[in-house]
Computed example of a mutant assay.
Amino acid sequence: MRTVGELLRQWRHRRRVSQLDLAIAADVSARHVSLVETGRSRPSAAMILRLAAQLDVPLRERNRLLLAAGFAPRYAERPLDREALPAAWDAVERVLRAHEPYPALAVDRRWNVVMSNRALAPFLAGVAPELLTPPINMVRLGLDPRGLAPHIVNLAQVRTLLRGRIARQLATAPDQELTALYEKFLAPRPEEEDQPVDSEIAIPMIFSFGGRELRLFSTTTTFGTPMDITLDEVSVESYYPADAESAAYFASPDAGVGTEAAAALVPELPSADR
């Protein structure tokens, strides 16, 4: 097991911060940072958390730092449900429901869906049932040939976008399971080149659905200053129409076609309408 000093040095190197810069940001001496990293000084729990905050260490990893130093974990990890985190559940539910008729979903750090709104269901109607067995993973769902991949017109561009995003996420907070997903679905291939996209707003996903092409771009929402590991790792992905034609589709009655059939395939998937 690595010492707290070794873990802190690893995070400092990952953030590309010098001992002096970290010391200035944390209002301590550079010598003290050096002593902590080399194990010649045992830091207090407060000092560990101060240094971790300046290094933007995820809450899950801050607990690991505390344990390595012999302290109890500081941050709880509760499921995102009405019993454990009622206020957070209600907040996510409101955001997802308010976003209808456009699709939105909440995902965890591994891109597993923890909640969705009803507008997502029609997009799942043709997906292989095995991909809809919880936990439903959005990377696998989007890029597997049995999932949404055949319907994404600009799949290479979407892969490029997602590759960069998850690579940055892994650089910030390494995770073995997410790394395995990256290697399976997103690792660069010799025959594939990253696809540039010209867009005035954001890179759209062009989706062939219902006999027409829908252009969607996404935004990401996270909890501010979370004190729970689950909330620290949850984000809401909201999709918006990127052109007038796509907006008109979602405003039409046809947008709801297939909702009941698709919802029946994923009865365990938490939905904002429950």
Rank of each mutant, 00 (worst) to 15 (best):
T3R: 03
T3Q: 00
V4I: 00
G5C: 01
L8I: 12
R9P: 01
W11Y: 11
R15Y: 07
V17E: 06
S18Q: 07
D21V: 12
I24L: 14
A30Y: 05
V36Q: 01
T38H: 11
T38A: 09
R42H: 14
A45V: 04
R50V: 10
L51S: 01
Q54S: 11
L55M: 05
D56G: 04
L59K: 05
L65Q: 01
L65F: 00
L66I: 01
L67W: 00
A72R: 15
R74C: 03
E77H: 06
D81E: 03
D81T: 09
A84Y: 01
P86C: 03
P86S: 08
A91I: 10
R97G: 06
A98R: 10
A106L: 09
V107A: 08
R109I: 08
R109Q: 05
R110N: 03
R110Y: 04
R118N: 10
A121Y: 15
A125I: 14
A125N: 12
A125E: 15
G126K: 13
V127K: 03
P129L: 09
L131R: 04
T133D: 10
M138G: 04
L141H: 02
L141T: 02
L141I: 07
R146P: 01
G147E: 04
G147A: 02
L148Q: 08
I152Q: 05
L155V: 02
A156K: 04
A156I: 09
A156G: 13
A156D: 14
R159L: 11
T160E: 02
R163N: 05
G164P: 02
A167D: 08
A167L: 11
E177M: 09
L178Q: 06
L178W: 00
L181E: 05
L186Y: 07
R189I: 05
P190I: 07
E193D: 08
E193G: 12
E193S: 13
Q195S: 09
P196G: 07
E200Q: 14
P204Q: 06
P204A: 03
I206R: 14
F209N: 10
E213I: 02
E213R: 11
F217V: 13
S218A: 14
S218V: 05
T222V: 13
G224L: 14
G224S: 14
T225G: 13
M227V: 12
D232G: 04
V234I: 15
P241M: 04
A242N: 02
E245H: 14
A248M: 02
S252F: 06
D254H: 12
T259H: 13
E260L: 12
A263H: 12
A264P: 10
V266F: 01
P267H: 04
E268F: 12
L269V: 12
P270T: 03
S271D: 08
